[in-house]
Design a binder for these strands. Sequence first.
DNA 1: CCTACCGATCGGTAGG
DNA 2: CCTACCGATCGGTAGG
Lengths: 197, 197
Amino acid sequence: MSRKNRTDVVAAACGMFAEQGFHGTSMRDLGKKLGLMGSSLYSHVVSKDELLVDVVREASSRFQSLANEVRTMPGTAIERLSRLIHGHLQILVEDPNQARTFLNETRFLPELERDTAVAMFDSYQQVFRDVLSGGRESGEFRADLDVHLAANLVLSLLNGTPRWFNSGGALNIESLASEVHHLLTVGLNPDPQRTPA
Amino acid sequence: MSRKNRTDVVAAACGMFAEQGFHGTSMRDLGKKLGLMGSSLYSHVVSKDELLVDVVREASSRFQSLANEVRTMPGTAIERLSRLIHGHLQILVEDPNQARTFLNETRFLPELERDTAVAMFDSYQQVFRDVLSGGRESGEFRADLDVHLAANLVLSLLNGTPRWFNSGGALNIESLASEVHHLLTVGLNPDPQRTPA
DNA sequence: CCTACCGATCGGTAGG
DNA sequence: CCTACCGATCGGTAGG
């Protein structure tokens, strides 16, 4: 109802991009959501692309913070992986619209910005690989672990959560993160024994 | 170059929807890819929506076949889960464009068709839950396993693969499926021992 | 399968 | 922040 600022516009865009996709959202749609004319948005933003850039940059910076934290974090590989899992899920769950826009719409960014985002996420993923290979050397993880593959699988699992996790549901982030960590470290099998081949 | 039929058009649409998204693909784009005018596509198809319907239905029927196979499949829970993992990955990897369109663009289907697709995937997911809970009863999986959650996590992991798996790369589907199965059953930990808290 | 076209909507601008 | 508008493009149709 009150006068809108750029932050309001970006927040609304974030929600619409998550639900309708970047190309499925028009500036007039977005204006309607904010109670404005579509053309009025151009007093806050210079282009539609800019809105997507803002959303993706915000998400990127969260992942980068987590990466930096874990890069300099002491502790075992298991502890560091645990922190990555929890931190990653927290980012996704805290703002699911931002997460979905980041995961699904980054590819529609102008080339330069998209390259930046991709490079950032690559270096983020490198932290996962570093933690996994550290744990492999220390004996915390399997010696035959394919670190590159495992990092992809772990990130796939994590990035899928915004599709089904309901932050209003019975399961909170702490439990989710702990379940994910449990699944990834000890697997589905019952505790002591192994599968017979 | 030669005259196109409906199958060609759907196949081209599948590729473009995967890469540009449904709303990011115009009928003229699609025509250009096929060497046709955009308007010529309407001799093969009655609407743009219909193309997406076709792609999603094809993918749906593949998942349904796998579900039916595993529903009536004898064997241990581990064997059945293994088949689900392998079959699911095969569907995703065999036609990554179809998979990506199914996973990302189904939400843009007309309401009725979307509901159908969602219902189908729900019943598909139920097979995962059934196998997991069967394995929990039989002692193959942990007694404390949250079956609903585990099914979501397993499917998240699987559905993330089209984002990074390169079918031309060194890793083939069999190895991928076996690695995924290994990760999900025994986890990242080294074989015999457990994590000390 | 093309040409020629329809009304609607797109991202965006000028001027206030 | 709105009104009024721009050229471009959208999904789709008529007629051949």
